[in-house]
Amino acid sequence: MSDLSLLVQMGFGALLALSVYLPLRCGQLSLATPGFYVIGGYVAALLSTRWPALSGAGTGYPLTSLALELVVAALVAAAVALVLGRPVLQLRGIYLAIATIALVEILRVLNLNLAWSGGAVGIFGIPQPFAGPGGYALATWVLLALVCWLCARLEAMRLGRAMAAIRDDELAARCMGIPSADVKLTAFVISAVIAALTGVLAAHFLNTWNARQGGFDASITTLAFVVFGGSRIWLGPVLGGLVITALPELLRPVGDLRLILFGLVILLGPILFPQGLITPERLARLQQTLRRP
């Protein structure tokens, strides 16, 4: 894998981690992210291969068409999340996790068996809006920067505070007038949109899309990003997504040992840093040390 391709994958990892992070920030262990990622990918794959008008006259796939796919994918994911979110988010803790894993699995089985999604083989020959991995890296990291900025702003807004309150004590938050069902649904919808946008870029990047892109193991991997990086401030999942995606590649020189080392990192991370690598307190301390000359 080229270095640029690795950068693209790392960006995807960080984006998916942020998608898992947002519901978790208001205490909701939702593992639906791979489902919305798959939906985004199918929107891109179907629109770009089945709708000739989008392909344009030139050599490359037009960026305007890519932008259109992103908008459609965001709308579809938001609509699905709005409809599913109300009933599903009434579940708590591990029950929510199991229900969302089930949703992802149902979607995977449906996609394996439906004609329009290309069945088990999936959809091939997804056109390329960028000439090489460089373009993808740029697009992915621009999207990542935008989402990071959104999350950072959220933390300064009342929605971010309400999310933190619900995570600490939902009943107390409700008694303070916070409509917790709406807040949780908002986080779920934003989370779905982020995953779907990532799916659009991934489908083009991989050139092919099929049901295997999202499944139970993807749910667990994306959760590991957040557990490893931390779930209390947006920088945590970003770091977790970047590092854990890159790790298998970075460990390539050690040969067969790399899978063992990878497993060790995933195992030791939460043991040594139960709240994840990055917490607001640790960040504040770091800032203080940096400021002191």
Binding site: R158, R161, A162, A164, A165, A173, M176, G177, I178
Partner: peptide, 12 residues
């Protein structure tokens, strides 16, 4: 922050 959360509806 605890009090700010109580001010949720004034914070629109």
């Amino acid at each position: 922050e605890n009090v700010l959360i109580g001010l949720h509806h004034s914070a629109r």
